[in-house]
């Protein structure tokens, strides 16, 4: 019973904060609500007994990525409500198409069926030991590839953001 209550609190927190991310006028508030959303997803990971990913999620998303976003918003001086008023038609179309996508996905899930499950509390799938052994044996090559990806992304970011000489 307790875990159900925690699940509903965390879910409503993540859904409400996700809606605020979309509908906030000020980009700074959007970034803040996204941090709230990420922290609630961190709680979901803990509920699913995935400790390693929960900590990685908190460090990478709420730490690194959101600091990068916040830094860019402040660097570009977007903290005023600078979005010009546009016609409401595209917004209505966006809401309708988002709702229709939700409807289609839920209907597709409704017609399917889930395989039998084991309780996440009774397994150790998310422990550092299990995930670490998987990463360093079965997924060693992709893991090494990610370092190349990071080098490429880092060099690309520096080259793109560098001031062009005239």
């Amino acid at each position: 019973m307790n875990s159900q209550i925690i699940f509903f609190i965390l879910s409503s927190l993540s859904l409400v904060s996700a809606l605020f991310v979309v509908f906030s006028k000020n980009p700074i508030y959007s970034v803040m609500w996204l941090i709230v959303c990420f922290i609630s997803i961190f709680g979901h990971y803990l509920m699913l007994n995935a400790q390693f990913l929960a900590i990685i999620h908190l460090i990478v998303y709420a730490g690194a990525i959101m600091v990068l976003m916040l830094f860019t918003v402040m660097l570009l001086n977007l903290n005023k409500e600078s979005e010009p008023h546009k016609s409401p038609l595209p917004k209505v179309a966006a809401i309708i198409s988002g709702g229709l996508l939700l409807l289609v996905l839920l209907a597709a899930m409704h017609s399917g069926s889930l395989p039998g499950y084991i309780s996440p509390d009774l397994t150790d799938t998310g422990y550092v030991q299990k995930v670490g052994i998987k990463i360093f044996t079965d997924f060693l090559l992709p893991f090494e590839m990610t370092s190349i990806l990071f080098i490429a992304a880092m060099i690309g970011a520096v080259v793109l953001a560098k001031k062009e000489k005239h």
Binding site: A50, L53, I56, T125, F143, T146, L149, A152, A153, A161
Partner: peptide
């Protein structure tokens, strides 16, 4: 977590890596 197999969590780890690289390039 519900199927008792750690492979999905390794995929999530790689998705996080790609997302971090994507955000860095996108913001640049």
């Amino acid at each position: 977590a519900y199927s008792g197999n750690s492979d999905g969590q390794v995929f999530v780890f790689f998705i996080m890596v790609v997302a971090a690289a994507e955000v860095a390039v996108g913001l640049a």
